[in-house]
Structure formats: structure tokens, C-alpha cells
Design a protein around this nucleic acid. Structure first.
Length: 889
RNA sequence: GGGCGGGUAGCUCAGUUGGGAGAGCAUCGGCCUUACAAGCCGAGGGUCACAGGUUCAAGCCCUGUUCCGCCCACCA
């Protein structure tokens, strides 16, 4: 079903799909390769995961980018919005492995090559899903240029970058203690580890001296790691342990003797002041181990099970089962001194939330420090602006404390590391293409590194790899640096910071002029929406029910800077009403507009005409100012208020007599031209926010051609055809509106039906004000529904009239014969009697000590509230009654 | 432990050169006024977390307190 002029309500179903197809067919999203001298605007999309389903975070992100792109197109810019998806290494591999598990297979059953084929197959079948969902939102990306982080070109960019960084000495391979996820079987970078508060215990364990002395009591939250201890450390200035250095203790449950060392790293005040050192399973202990040249005993393997090194009793046990076993064994031997409850933070995998196990292994690292310094400077110099500004501080903070980036991952799906090892001589060869023979010994027994690169490695190149780098393409020359990056702060470090580093290093320029950081869409408890938590609101469902325009406008109206978004269904419904209101305003206008309205000067204007044109000029200024500074909510708000409360509520009502031909032909023609102009400009300005309904109206609006996407944004006041503000019209109209509202108030208070015609008298001293009111007599009579309206210099207050004061004017609404004072008084008095009875009852209740003592708190509270409401209502009725007495003859 | 954001109407939230306290929804009253009942015309509702300070003037600036949320961090 599609909407047409006869439909009273706007139904987005079908309309949205129809116009989206039209835009694509007409190539309206396409950006030229080489547009010459005209102005360019470019955005690269934050590539969603191929595994992804559209969530509210995407919806917000995409909506904001689409608003910017459509907005810039209306100014005639060449806009490139570069789309694509991310291969999302671990996430995608997980999805396919899960699928295999249902077939009772593992990736190892298939082998690497077959498994990767299988992932590509998955990508072919499901990878387009997220793109189709973006289209439902109205995303105006240049889809013909769609890229994928693992496509041929981008893979080449990845290899080029890896090799160059290697040659520059910024990539190296080394053995370190890394964060290991025993479930995903891969290394994780530091920022891929999430810390969660967990309830645990602090175990105090006695390590007896090897000569039979009492030894030391150490405290640990992870007793199972003691099997890998290779020292006990104390602080050199700890008097309790003076002279301990060099002594030896017996490691319980094993037959090992380990030394006592001194290091100022130890915190004297924590626990017993003695620290067990497990270099192979704790990052700090690892540092201590290197410093003091301790053995590194690996007792937990890659699957989270204990190794043979842990001893026969424990080998093969899961690490958590082992914890229990160790505690039990210690208890048996009487070496467990005490156990305290302790909440502490535990590192977990950001993908699967398995507790991370620090593990010793050989990995590839990027030395990012030199890159980070350049990237920091670029922001400090203002080459890239971060909006809102306060995120700059977070950015600097991270850049300053940055550590080497572990980029190798032990999974199969991703860019395989372009490094080969010679079986013969052990030579390490890093090259873009597979070498035939060893560069050192000439042997051809070469093995490629098994690992793949961190997903973020390829994402870091996105702003230039998608434009054709490492080739110097026209596209790259035209659109790099891009104009703005729009993204959430959750990937400021993962992605934005790394794009800055890579962009500056390889393109020698910032990848984007601005970075706009938008809010995160959270659930009502302030938690991130995530699939695993199950607190996701599906945007597609919302679009099905309310339409994409309603969702987009809601998100834009919510997108205030520096605050998270908590989405409410009510709010979306409210803005859906706005879309409908717009539709109906257009329907009404269309009844009066024809092609001729598009021609001719705007002259012979009425006050309402001048006023609405002035307001249009104002809203034009507000919208451009807002969008130029990424204040989406202000732009949406300004357009909302203008469209509904100025254009619909006042202008359309005011202009009806003109349109119906109650005045002159000239007036009618003039107002039609104004109506056409305002409606047209309003639609154009609304289009970036709500593209579908504005296109739908545009197509049936006389005097327009082609798509609204190709329309011209209303020109600024400085340019030739620019709309001008008209302060005189605004103040005069404000006066008229005040008079009308004053009369309407009286109607409400006195309970006079809107249909009832009233007689009104205005007394005003000032000649100019009097003239202004008099000049707009018709409008006032029409909108306030008056039978007669007289404007006079000050005089005596008429008898039997209600008063409303407006600035220098006093408005008298004559009530003779309009209301039956006695009847009205009787009505009010009757209501007051009833209320008085109710008040008496509640007072009685509230004064009853038994009630106060025995009734539940909430019942008493409710009674009090009820009582107060009744009192308030009574006061109000009394006031009206007083007024009635005052105006009665 | 460090950093950041927030506390405004019953609910969800706007509110930047410091001067009017606002929107949507909800509530109450009146309207089928020929674009729109997904609507129209009105009304009620707030010591802008608390306490000080600067100022002619503070929701907005400064200081302190308190509550909530987020990020970062190697305290076993």
C-alpha cells in the first residue's frame, strides 16, 4: 500500500522502498572519481561486522552520517560516502565454528583451507544482510564502491603496510606474556581485555623455609598458579623480612625449592607483604621474572588446562578445578592459613567473556610509540578536530600511555601474516608475496607464519585503503583526507586512534578533518546494548512499525552532544506523529497550489506571509548553524518547532481565508506563492533528516523537478535570493498572537465552546499598537472566532466582561448573553460542593490516628496527595467564581 | 587509585557568548472548526541534587558535599 493525496494518514510502508529504489536507479548516491574543481565532501563508513545485525548503535551512526551527506549534497558538493564491511576475525570465525558444531564438526576436521572457504561461503550468503538493513534506514552510500576488509585491494594494502613497518623496524616478533583467551584460542591486545568486578577469595598460603623454619605466608587470589611460582618477593625496606634475600623456601605441593628476592614493586601494606612470583602467568610477575632472571614455569596450557609441569596430581585438570584441588591439598597439609572474601577485577575476553589467562608466547608487535606521538601532535595542532572537544583529553591520555600493540592472532580467518620461516636455517622473511627460496640459505623449505593479523590492523587503513592505496588513484587524490569520521567513543582507541597513526604515517596527512563522537545507545539501566545481554531493541522492527523517517528523526532529536541515549518507544511514536502532521500539511497545501505558484515575485504580502518568511529565514539559519557544528538535536528541534507550531498552527490557519478566496484575487495569488515557497524550502531542509516522506511529497508538489536530493538548499541571507528576516513583521505578529491567545484563555476558563462567536473590545493607549491591532482585525476575528471586534483608546471597563492583558492593550471579552452567569455559577458551585464533601472525607481520614498508625505508608501518601489535589482544584474553582462575580453586572 | 559524564515537570530528556525554565509522552478541561482525533484549543505540574561564593542577574561560572553511570589502571 502506498500513500496518496486521498489518504488521511501517512503510511511509510512501500513508500520508503519505492524511493530508495528510485534513488539507486538514478545513481543519486554516486560520487564522481574526479570531479574537477567543485567542492568535495567525504565520509568513510565505520565498517560494520559482516556477522552483524543492525542494532540501534548502527542506526544512530548511519543516520547521522546520512544527514551530513544529504545535507552537503543540497549545497551541490560532490559527496562520497564510502561503504563497506569488516571481516571481524574472531567474531566471524566464532559464527562459522558454531555452525560447524551443529554438524558435529570442528574447524580442525576441515583443515585450514577448507575452513576458510567455508567462511567465505558464509560471507557470500549472509554478508549482505547488514547492508540491506542499512539501506532500509535510507543510507545514501555509493554502493558501487562497496569494499570489504579482506578483498583483494585491501589485503594488498595490509601486506604493504606490514612489510614497510617491518622494514622500518616498527614491527617485530618477540616472546612476551600476552593475554590469552582459552576459549577463542588466541592472543588478545590489552584493550581487548575487559575488567569485571568479581567476588573471589584471597588465600593465605604458608611457604615453609627449606631448612624447616616457619617461612613466609603469601596471599593470592589464584592458588593454582602457585604451581608455577619461582620466587617469593618482599620489599627491601620491610622490617619484618629484613635479611630475607637469598634465603630459600619450599614450594608446597611440589618438590621445588625457590628463592626469596627483594623488589620495591612489592606493596608492604597488602596482605602479608610477601608476594608469590609466577612469571609465566602474571604480567607483573613476568616483569619481576625478567628483572631477577627467574625461571618461567608454564603450568597452564592454551586450553586452560594444567600442564605436566604442574605435577602429576594436577596435570590435565581445568584451571578452576585445579584451584579447588590445590586449596584442598593445602588444607590437608595445614598450609592454608586463612581465606578472606575479596572482590577484585578479573580480565575477560571482550568477545566471549571467558577469564583471560596470561600466557607466555611468541607474538608480533607494532612499536606504536613513534606513531602515537605524531598522532597526538596532529590533534594538538588542530589538523583534526575532535567533537565534542572533551574527548581530546581521553585521546591524549591513551596515546601517552600507549604500549606496543600485539597484532598476531591465533585464528584462521583474517589476513595471514606475511612472514615465512626457513626450516633449514631459521631465517625470518617478511615480504608482500611468498618468497620462492630462503633469502639466507637458498633453501625452499619455507613455512608461512600460521597466525593472522588483528582485525583492527586492516581497519586502521580503512580511510585510504578503500580509496585505492597503495596506488595513487584519482579517488584517493580527490577525497583524502576525508571530511569527517562519525563514530561512537567505544572504538576511539580500537579504531580512531589507530587510523590517525596509520594515516599520518603512510599518507603523511590526517585521515579526516573532524571526528564526531556520538553517544552510545544504552538500555534503560545505562548498560550497553548487546546481543549477549539480550537487551537489544531491533531497529528493523521499529522501522516496520513506525517507518525509517520516524526512527531517524527520533535519533537525531536525541543526539545531544556528550550524553548517552536511552531510547523510548513513546518518543518514536511522538515523532511518527510529526511525520504524519507534515504529510497532512502537505495534503492541505496541495489543494491550493499549482505550477504557477513557482513563478513570480513574492509581493503583495500580508502580515502572516511576511512573518512566516521571516521565520523561515530564522530556521534556515538555525539549521545550518546546528548541522555545521554537529548539533543534530538542535537542527531537528528547530525544524520540528517551525513546521508544526509555526507553519501548521499559525500560518496555515491564518492564511486559510486568503486561500479560500475570501479576500482578493491578488491576496490569494500572493499567499499561494508564499505557501509554495515555504513548503518547498521546509521540505528541502527536512530532507536530510527524513528523506522518504520529503521525497514522497516533493514528487507531487507542483513546480518541482527530479529528486529532492538534487534540490538546492535555501540560500543564505547574504546571497541574491536569500530569505531575509523581518523584525517588524515578527513583533507585529507576536502582538496579534498574544491577543488571540488571550481571548482563547478566556474561552477555556469560562468554559465557552470554541464554536461560539464572541464580541471583543480592546482598549489601548498607544496609537501605533492600536493601529497594528486594527490592521489585523480580520486575522484576529478569524482565529479567535469573533463576531465583532472594536479597538478603542482607553475607556471605561465594560460591564460583564472577562479581561486579558496583553502588553499595553487590555482585551475585554464581552460575556453578556454568552454565558448564563447564574447557570455557570450553579455549575461551579455544584462541583465545589462535591469537592468540599470529598475534602471533608479525606481530612477525616487523615486526622484519624488509627488510620495513620495502621495503614500502609503508600496508602497514607496517596490519601495526602489526593487531598492536596482536591484543595488545589477547589482554589481554582473559587478563583473562577470570583471572576464571575467581578464581571457580573 | 586516576579520569570523565550526569542529577531540570509524573516519565524520557533539551537548554554555550549568564537575563523568558522548555519539549515529547502522561494527567486534567473543552472541541468530530471541511489538511490532520496519529488532530485542534486551553490548563495544571519544577527551592533546575545539596551548601556556599562571584555577579545588577546563576540551571548555566567558581568551591565544597552527596548520589548515579562510564572509561582507564599491574596492587597479589
Amino acid at each position: 500500500m502506498t500513500s496518496n493525496l486521498l489518504d488521511k494518514g501517512y503510511d511509510p510502508t512501500g513508500v520508503e522502498q519505492r524511493w530508495y529504489d528510485f534513488w539507486e536507479r538514478e545513481k543519486l548516491f554516486a560520487a564522481p572519481d574526479d570531479p574537477g574543481d567543485s567542492r568535495c565532501y567525504a565520509i568513510v563508513i565505520p565498517p560494520p561486522n559482516v556477522t552483524g545485525m543492525l542494532h540501534m548503535g548502527h542506526a544512530l551512526n548511519i543516520t547521522l552520517q546520512d544527514i551530513l551527506c544529504r545535507y552537503r549534497r543540497l549545497f551541490g558538493d560532490n559527496v562520497l560516502w564510502m561503504p563497506g564491511t569488516d571481516h571481524a576475525g574472531i567474531a566471524t570465525q566464532n559464527v562459522v565454528e558454531r555452525q560447524l558444531r551443529e554438524e558435529k564438526k570442528s574447524r580442525h576436521d576441515l583443515g585450514r583451507e577448507k575452513f576458510i572457504d567455508r567462511v567465505w561461503e558464509w560471507r557470500r550468503d549472509y554478508g549482505g544482510r547488514i547492508i540491506r538493513q542499512l539501506k532500509r534506514l535510507g543510507a545514501s552510500c555509493d554502493w558501487d564502491r562497496e569494499r570489504f576488509t579482506m578483498d583483494e585491494g585491501l589485503s594488498r594494502a595490509v601486506r604493504t603496510v606490514f612489510v614497510r613497518l617491518y622494514q622500518e623496524g616498527l614491527i617485530y616478533r618477540g616472546e612476551y606474556l600476552i593475554n590469552w583467551c582459552p576459549r577463542c584460542h588466541t592472543a588478545l591486545a590489552d584493550i581487548e581485555v575487559e575488567h569485571e568486578e568479581q567476588n573471589g577469595a584471597l588465600y593465605h598460603i604458608r611457604y615453609p623455609a627449606h631448612d624447616g623454619g616457619k617461612g613466609f605466608v603469601v596471599a593470592t587470589t589464584r592458588p593454582e598458579t602457585m604451581l608455577g611460582d619461582t620466587a617469593v618477593a618482599v620489599h627491601p625496606e620491610d622490617k619484618r623480612y629484613a635479611g630475607s634475600a637469598g634465603r630459600k623456601v619450599r614450594l608446597p605441593l611440589t618438590d621445588r625449592i625457590i628463592p626469596v628476592i627483594e623488589d620495591s614493586y612489592v606493596d608492604i601494606s597488602f596482605g602479608t607483604g610477601a608476594l608469590k612470583v609466577t612469571p609465566a602467568h602474571d604480567p607483573n610477575d613476568f616483569e619481576l621474572g625478567r628483572k631477577h632472571d627467574l625461571d618461567m614455569v608454564k603450568v597452564i596450557d592454551e586450553t586452560g588446562k594444567m600442564t605436566p609441569e604442574a605435577g602429576d596430581r594436577f596435570a590435565g585438570l581445568d584451571r578452576f578445578a585445579c584451584r579447588k584441588a590445590v586449596v584442598a591439598a593445602l588444607q590437608e597439609e595445614g598450609l592454608l592459613e586463612k581465606v578472606e572474601d575479596l572482590t577484585h577485577s578479573v580480565g575477560t575476553c571482550y568477545r566471549c567473556h571467558t577469564v583471560v589467562e596470561p600466557n607466555l608466547s611468541k607474538q608480533w608487535f607494532v612499536n606504536v610509540k613513534p606513531l602515537a606521538e605524531v598522532a597526538t601532535r596532529a590533534v594538538k595542532n588542530g589538523k583534526t578536530m575532535i567533537v565534542p572537544e572533551h574527548w581530546e583529553k581521553t585521546y591524549y591520555e591513551w596515546m601517552d600511555n600507549i604500549r606496543d600493540w600485539c597484532v598476531s592472532r591465533q585464528i584462521w580467518w583474517g589476513h595471514r601474516i606475511p612472514a615465512w620461516y626457513c626450516d633449514q636455517c631459521g631465517q625470518e622473511i617478511v615480504a608482500e608475496e611468498a618468497p620462492e627460496t630462503c633469502t639466507a640459505c637458498g633453501n625452499n623449505a619455507l613455512r608461512q607464519d600460521e597466525d593472522v593479523l588483528d582485525t583492527w590492523f586492516s581497519s586502521a587503513l580503512w580511510p585510504f585503503s578503500t580509496l585505492g592505496w597503495p596506488d595513487t588513484t584519482p579517488l584517493l587524490k580527490t577525497y583524502f583526507p576525508t571530511s569527517v569520521l562519525v563514530t561512537g567513543f567505544d572504538i576511539l582507541f580500537f579504531w580512531v586512534a589507530r587510523m590517525m597513526m596509520m594515516g599520518l604515517h603512510f599518507m603523511e596527512d590526517v585521515p579526516f578533518r573532524d571526528v564526531y563522537i556520538h553517544a552510545l545507545v544504552r538500555d534503560k539501566d545505562g548498560k550497553k546494548m548487546s546481543k549477549s545481554t539480550g537487551n537489544v531493541i531491533d531497529p528493523i522492527t521499529v522501522i516496520d512499525v513506525h517507518g525509517a523517517d520516524a526512527l531517524r528523526f527520533t535519533l537525531a532529536a536525541f543526539a545531544a552532544q556528550g550524553r548517552d541515549i536511552k531510547l523510548s518507544e513513546n518518543r518514536i511514536e511522538g515523532y511518527r506523529h510529526f511525520i504524519n502532521k507534515l504529510w497532512n500539511a502537505a495534503r492541505f497545501s496541495m489543494m491550493h497550489i499549482d505550477d504557477a505558484c513557482a513563478d513570480g515575485e513574492l509581493d503583495n504580502l500580508s502580515l502572516a506571509d511576511r512573518w512566516i518568511l521571516s521565520r523561515l529565514a530564522t530556521v534556515r539559519e538555525e539549521v545550518t548553524d546546528a548541522l555545521d557544528h554537529y548539533r543534530f538535536n538542535e537542527g531537528a528541534g528547530a525544524l520540528y518547532r517551525f513546521s508544526w507550531h509555526e507553519f501548521c498552527d499559525w500560518y496555515l490557519e491564518a492564511v486559510k481565508p486568503d486561500l479560500y478566496g475570501n479576500k482578493s484575487e491578488i491576496r490569494m495569488a500572493a499567499s499561494k506563492r508564499v505557501l509554495w515557497r515555504v513548503l518547498r524550502d521546509m521540505l528541502i531542509m527536512l530532507h536530510p533528516f527524513i528523506p522518504f516522506v520529503t521525497e514522497e511529497i516533493w514528487q507531487i508538489l507542483p513546480g518541482t523537478e527530479g529528486s529532492i536530493m538534487k534540490a538546492e538548499f535555501p540560500p543564505s541571507p547574504e546571497s541574491a535570493n536569500g530569505l531575509q528576516k523581518d523584525p517588524d513583521a515578527e513583533s507585529e505578529m507576536a502582538l496579534v498572537m498574544d491577543v488571540i491567545t488571550g481571548i482563547r484563555n478566556v474561552r477555556g476558563e469560562m468554559n465557552i465552546s470554541p464554536g461560539k462567536s464572541l464580541d471583543v473590545l480592546v482598549h489601548v493607549d498607544s496609537d501605533t499598537i492600536r493601529d497594528q491591532i486594527h490592521a489585523n482585525r480580520d486575522m484576529i476575528m478569524n482565529l479567535a472566532r469573533l463576531g465583532s471586534f472594536d479597538v478603542l483608546p482607553s475607556a471605561e471597563k465594560p460591564k460583564f466582561a472577562a479581561t486579558s492583558v496583553v502588553k499595553d492593550a487590555t482585551v475585554y471579552v464581552l460575556l453578556e448573553g454568552v454565558i448564563d452567569v447564574d447557570k455557570e455559577k450553579a455549575r461551579i458551585e455544584k462541583e465545589m460542593t462535591k469537592i468540599s464533601r470529598d475534602i471533608e472525607a479525606t481530612f477525616k481520614k487523615l486526622n484519624n490516628s488509627d488510620f495513620l498508625k495502621k495503614a500502609p505508608e503508600n496508602v497514607i501518601e496517596k490519601a495526602r496527595e489526593n487531598n492536596q489535589a482536591l484543595l488545589d482544584r477547589k482554589d481554582k474553582l473559587q478563583a473562577t467564581l470570583d471572576k464571575l462575580m467581578g464581571i457580573a453586572p
